[in-house]
């Protein structure tokens, strides 16, 4: 069983032909994506080799403190990327870190205490990656929704303020819509799981020879975990971010 899991250097090299196919399409259609595909390919190889060696080291020494540091590192990176996607919202790094950090912490606590996963680096690190990346995407969508709605519904917000509403009352409908938008992809994914895609967690376990009926149990936990973390992250991010659209005189600044 394990022999089928090995990809030797030659196989890896041949897989580059898959990238070449993409580059040929680019060349023929003059899409101008050649550089991007090349850089993306190189980056993927370098980043994955580095993380492969780092994970091997973390798994081998199996130290709680180092595992925790890895969790923080993942949360920091996810927060930084979410912050970059915020399109100018003030304090977006703090907001992203609070949202992703809280979502990740709560999900990990529930998973570890329910016994769904163990506090071992081999389980904690990949699960944290899954949680944080989904929270990051959800927050990115939430920020985009806040920005576009505060701009589209600017007059409505001004009306509410002029009628005597505070920041929260004036923003509530936008906040709710943005949380919904942030959560929508993970709900949709959960609805179609198994019908359209066999997600990474489950596919990985089946690859490793685990009985599919066992593998789906993990996938069920993962799907629920992702709905929970995207809702927590979108909720915290929306509630923290809407205030940044106003000044201390309760005036809209966008």
């Amino acid at each position: 069983m394990t022999s089928s899991l090995e990809i030797n250097n030659w196989s890896l090299l041949f897989s580059v032909t898959l990238l070449i196919v993409a580059m040929l399409v680019d060349y023929k259609e003059k899409l101008g994506l050649g550089n991007d595909i090349f850089v993306a390919g190189i980056r993927a190889v370098i980043q994955l080799f580095i993380i492969g060696y780092v994970l091997r080291y973390i798994l081998e020494i199996d130290n709680d403190l180092i595992t925790f540091a890895m969790v923080l590192f993942i949360v920091f990176n996810a927060s930084y990327n979410a912050h970059k996607r915020s399109e100018g919202i003030n304090r977006s790094f703090t907001i992203s870190a609070t949202a992703i950090g809280t979502g990740t912490a709560l999900s990990l606590i529930v998973l570890v205490f329910s016994g769904a996963i163990d506090w071992t680096p081999a389980q904690i690190v990949p699960i944290t990656g899954m949680i944080a990346s989904n929270a990051m995407t959800a927050i990115g969508i939430t920020y985009r929704s806040l920005n576009s709605k505060f701009s589209d519904q600017r007059q409505q917000v001004l009306e509410k303020l002029a009628l005597g509403a505070d920041k929260k009352q004036a923003s509530m409908s936008i906040v709710r819509e943005s949380i919904k938008t942030g959560m929508a992809p993970s709900i949709d994914r959960t609805k179609t799981v198994g019908l359209v895609s066999l997600p990474g967690m489950m596919a990985g376990l089946i690859f490793a020879g685990v009985d599919p009926v066992e593998a789906i149990r993990y996938q069920i936990v993962v799907m629920f975990m992702l709905i929970s973390v995207t809702s927590i992250a979108s909720f915290i991010a929306s509630y923290m971010a809407y205030k940044e659209y106003y000044n201390d005189r309760n005036q809209l600044t966008v």
Binding site: Q153, Q155, Q156, L158, E159, K160, A162, L163, S173
Partner: peptide, 11 residues
């Protein structure tokens, strides 16, 4: 109470 030139309704 401030009333805007092109008032918008909401909700």
């Amino acid at each position: 109470s401030y009333f805007f030139q092109n008032a918008a309704l909401f909700d």
